[in-house]
Structures are given as structure tokens and as C-alpha cells.
Design a protein around this nucleic acid. Structure first.
Lengths: 183, 183
DNA sequence: GCTAGTCTGTAGCGAGTGCTACAGAATCTC
DNA sequence: GAGATTCTGTAGCACTCGCTACAGACTAGC
């Protein structure tokens, strides 16, 4: 690995941490550079432009989410919808996952109009959906994808509630939905 | 009503429309002024600062959501949780509500750190929750608020899915959750 | 040592940001 | 009509934005 690639790698790790701490609000080139301990000039030496910088950092964050998912339910295992939903809710409410989901909501909001967020959001959510579909224990049918999206919607909604009303309200909502599903 | 108040009123209406069209991405003073057909100088004559301008416009948007809710289920009527959820899902998927929920997701994302969004998001979501609680037909208990938040989470999650994957995916998810609740 | 190519700091451009000072226009009061 | 008050356009300040031109510092091969 060349010096340049090593530096790139280090910078991306620091930036992913920065995103988890501060979200998307501190993402000018100068702020990112400061968080990565380099000059903005160097950021644009390692990457072609700002969009590439952000994409690399966000992909790193998404990778940490993918890692957590892989641990949660191993490949090959399948679960009924309400069990899978419960597992994912619990993951979302984990303290160490909170910054990840907060950033995720910000990315979706930005995805409405601005690149590179649109592409990133579509990629990340597709990966998330495929993960669910592969672990969904239910009769084959056209509503397999739809069920996955429903689970995904609830999990993302929990993250949204957590931002507005705090972790306690979100945990309450997560419990309430389990009751709704079991009656 | 003084000339100034009349102008303010007209400006707020135009700005609410602008927000529904373009979201929160075109919200510099000059862009807002252009959308309202006045100069940025005048915007700061009608309002003390930019935050006040945005707050007024967003409150107008929130009022239109409140209006739609009032029509959906009249005050005094109560419904079981899964019926209320179905009604709200259908509202969220309505073509004329789409821009409202898109803006709502953007506000929540911005609420993480920036005023006036933090305050606005808390106010709006509290109103939404109270509306649900008042129409929730279920045994009294500590989980009444929690159930309302669970319904709210799913509705907001649907909006998020709609942004990422489009209306069809969101509608599929809305149908899927009804199936989950009925088995 | 010399040259070629890779790296990195300085300084700055043009555009956009929220906001304000100032002055002139319009309206109202007497 | 004079004077006070309310309105509104022009111009600009101090700042941040993404990005770049330029020049000097480094290393590699000869």
C-alpha cells in the first residue's frame, strides 16, 4: 500500500468517527480536514472532490452497520417477521448504534436532492433490505420484499423518534410494537 | 390588520409552498425572499431574523398537517391501534401529503443540532402524539403513550422509505404491516 | 550532485451566507 | 404644507464555501 493509500485509509477512519460524533452538520472541507488532522488542501489531494470524501466516510459508517447486522443474525438463519423486527429494534436501541442511526436519518433527509447522498442512501437501504429478506422466515410470495420494507420502515421510524424524543420514548415504542404484534 | 401584518401573512403562505416544493435545501434568505417575491431586506423587516422566517413557514406547513389529521378522524372518535395505524398509513401515502412528510423528515434530521429545528420538531411531534393518544381505543395504562409513539414511528418510517425507494415501495410496506398485525 | 516525480503548505479566487447602515420614498398627523 | 413615522431599495460588511495556482520540500533513480 502506497503512502497515499495509507493516509487515505487513516483519514477515512477518522472522518467516519467524526460523522458519528457530529452528524452531517460539520462537513465543510475545512471542518472535515480539521477532524482528520490534515489540511483541506491534502483532503483534495487524497480525493478528487468533497463528494468523494463524504462518500468514503459514509461508506465506512455503513460498513460498521453491516458488521453489526452480520453479528446479530448469522447468514443462513431465518426468523419469523415479528422476531426479526424485535431483534432489529433491539439493535437500533443499542447505545453504540445510536450515532449510526442518527447519521442514517440525516443521510436520507439529504438524499432528497443532493448527490452523493441520493446514491448512498439507495445503496445502503438496498443492502439493509436484502439482509432482511435473506433472514425472513415466511412463505414465498410477492410480499416478501414488502414485509422487509415494513420492518425497515419501523426500525428507521424508531431512529427518528429517538432523535426527537430521546431514547426512552423510542424504547417504549419498541416495546409497544411487540405487544401490538402479539395480540 | 396592518399592512405589515398582511404582507407577513402573504409571505408566510408563499414560503410554506416553497418549502413543500423544495424542502429545506433552498432556504438562504435570498432564496426565500425570491420565492416570496420580495427582497431579502424586506424579509428581515417582517421578521427579526432568519430563524423566525423559517419557523413561521414551517409552522404553516405543520398546520396543514394538523388540518389533514382533523379531517381524517374527528375529535371524540376512537379506534383500535391497528385501525388507527392503517388510517394514518393511508394518509401518509396520499399524493398531496407526500411533500409534507418529506419536509418533516428533513426537519427531524436538522433537529439533531440546529435551532430552530430542534424546538419545532419537538412541538410538532408532541402534537402528533397527542392527536393519536386522544383517538386510541385501548385499555388505560402506562403503554398508551408508548403505543402512540410506536404508531408514529411506523408512519415516519414509511415517509423515510418513500424518500429512499419511492411511493410504490412505501405502499407495499404499508400493506405488509397490516398483514403482520392481522395474523 | 542532478533531475524527475511525488508530496504539501500558503495564499487566494469567486461565489454565497446572514445581516446591517444609510438614505430616500411613501404615508400619516396636525 | 411641515414634520414625524413607516416602509423599502442600494450597497456592502465580515464571514464561510469548494476549489485551485503556485512554489517549495521531499524522495528516487542515475
Amino acid at each position: 500500500m502506497s503512502v497515499r493509500e495509507e493516509q487515505r485509509e487513516k483519514v477515512v477512519n477518522l472522518l467516519a468517527g467524526h460523522l458519528l460524533e457530529t452528524g452531517l452538520s460539520q462537513t465543510s472541507l475545512r471542518q472535515l480536514a480539521s477532524a482528520a488532522g490534515v489540511s483541506d488542501r491534502m483532503l483534495l489531494y487524497y480525493f478528487p472532490d468533497k463528494a468523494a470524501v463524504l462518500s468514503a466516510a459514509i461508506e465506512r459508517v455503513a460498513a460498521s452497520l453491516a458488521g453489526a447486522l452480520a453479528e446479530l443474525v448469522p447468514e443462513g438463519t431465518t426468523l419469523p417477521p415479528h422476531t426479526l423486527l424485535a431483534q432489529l429494534s433491539r439493535l437500533t436501541m443499542r447505545e453504540d448504534m445510536r450515532p449510526v442511526f442518527r447519521v442514517w436519518v440525516e443521510i436520507v433527509a439529504a438524499a432528497r436532492q443532493e448527490e452523493p447522498y441520493t446514491t448512498l442512501a439507495a445503496t445502503i437501504i438496498a443492502g439493509f433490505r436484502d439482509w432482511i429478506v435473506a433472514r425472513l422466515d415466511m412463505a414465498d410470495g410477492a410480499d416478501r420484499d414488502a414485509t422487509a420494507m415494513a420492518i425497515l420502515a419501523f426500525v428507521d421510524g424508531l431512529a427518528l423518534v429517538e432523535i426527537c424524543c430521546g431514547m426512552d420514548a423510542a424504547k417504549g415504542a419498541a416495546n409497544a410494537v411487540e405487544n401490538l404484534l402479539n395480540h
